Amino acid sequence: MTLVPTAELMSAAAARGTGQGAFNVIHLETAEGLIAGAQRAGLPLILQISENCARYHGGLEPLALASMALAKRASVPVSLHLDHAEDEQLAMQAVDLGFGSIMYDGAHLAYEDNVAATARVTDYAHAMGVYVEAELGKVGGKDGAHAPGVRTDPKEAADFVAATGVDALAVAVGSSHAMTERSATLDLELIGRLRGSLDVPLVLHGSSGVADQDIVSAISAGMTKINVSTHLNGFFTRAVRDCLNADPALVDPRRYLRAGRDALVPESARLLTLFATLEYDS
């Protein structure tokens, strides 16, 4: 296998009625651990690099090229996605670099401005055969489309997709970004109405705050792409902390970063399997 277009993975999952895991890269070790987890599960993976992550590294290109190199040698299909780009130029740079998909996040804009900006980015991406995800509603934790209590309106969502031509839509249905406890309550009835109103796949952001069974229920109700970041970061960080606590004299970062990387493998494999099979083991 090798680096594949995100459209290929999304179309396959939508046709099966299962979920496609999309996990965020923070640095090289997370990309390595996440791909190893996908290989253990024998399932495809969408690797995501966010605008915030690109800013942390001083630019998009170095981490993107490294992630692509890892994807090209993976034994399972892996695509590369730009996550939560509020900067139109960054979204276009990702297209030029060869990303399989981009998420332009104009949810902070007034509705008409969001439509106009999203349409511009979509036209640019589609000219290069790149899949586009957008966001509508308010998903909290980032003051974006998932703020507590705000929900995506199905009629407005249908109008937005028609006006922008996007390929997938992230919707606000009760989840929130950066949650460290899995206590969010999803509006499954709304997910069903959104699924019925749209002819593009739905995306669940803030999935780290959602329990396994509720994610399975959300996929059954109509969600396709399931984004996870904070939950997996927790596994990495706890393993690093345990490694350092066990050996206070340790100074070689490869040893504690390896512990974090290795901790991602079983959990990312478990989540991908859960999303793909919808078999919840309580």
Rank of each mutant, 00 (worst) to 15 (best):
M1E: 11
P5W: 13
A7P: 01
A7L: 09
E8Q: 15
L9F: 08
S11H: 13
S11D: 12
A12S: 13
A13D: 10
G21Y: 01
N24V: 08
H27S: 13
H27V: 11
L28R: 13
L28S: 11
E29N: 11
E29M: 11
A31R: 01
A31G: 07
E32W: 02
A36S: 09
G37M: 10
G37H: 09
A41K: 07
P44C: 08
C53S: 10
R55F: 09
R55I: 14
H57K: 05
G58H: 06
G58A: 05
L60N: 03
P62K: 08
M68G: 03
A69N: 11
A71Q: 08
K72T: 08
S75R: 15
S75C: 11
S75E: 14
H81P: 05
H81T: 08
D83V: 08
A85K: 00
D87L: 06
E88I: 15
A94S: 09
V95H: 06
L97H: 06
G100K: 00
G100S: 06
Y104M: 03
A107R: 11
L109I: 07
Y111Q: 02
E112I: 06
D113P: 02
V115K: 01
A116C: 09
A117L: 12
A117K: 15
T122A: 08
Y124K: 10
H126G: 04
A127N: 04
M128L: 12
M128T: 10
M128G: 10
G129C: 14
G129T: 12
V132G: 06
V139S: 00
K142W: 09
D143C: 05
D143L: 09
H146A: 12
H146S: 13
A147Y: 09
V150L: 11
V150F: 15
D153R: 06
K155Y: 09
A157I: 01
A157K: 01
A158H: 03
D159E: 15
F160N: 01
A162I: 01
G165M: 02
D167Q: 03
A168G: 06
L169A: 01
V171S: 02
V171Q: 02
V173E: 05
G174K: 03
S176A: 15
A178G: 10
R182T: 12
R182Q: 14
S183L: 12
D187V: 03
L188I: 10
H205A: 08
S207L: 04
S208H: 03
S208L: 07
G209Y: 05
D212K: 14
D214R: 09
A218T: 01
A221Y: 04
K225P: 00
I226G: 07
S229F: 15
T230S: 08
H231Q: 13
N233S: 15
G234L: 06
F235N: 10
F235W: 15
A239L: 04
R241G: 07
L244N: 04
L244V: 12
P248M: 10
V251K: 13
R254T: 10
R258N: 13
A259Q: 02
A263Q: 01
E267H: 15
E267V: 15
R270T: 02
R270D: 01
T273D: 14
F275N: 03
T277K: 09
L278S: 01
Y280W: 14
Y280N: 13
D281E: 13
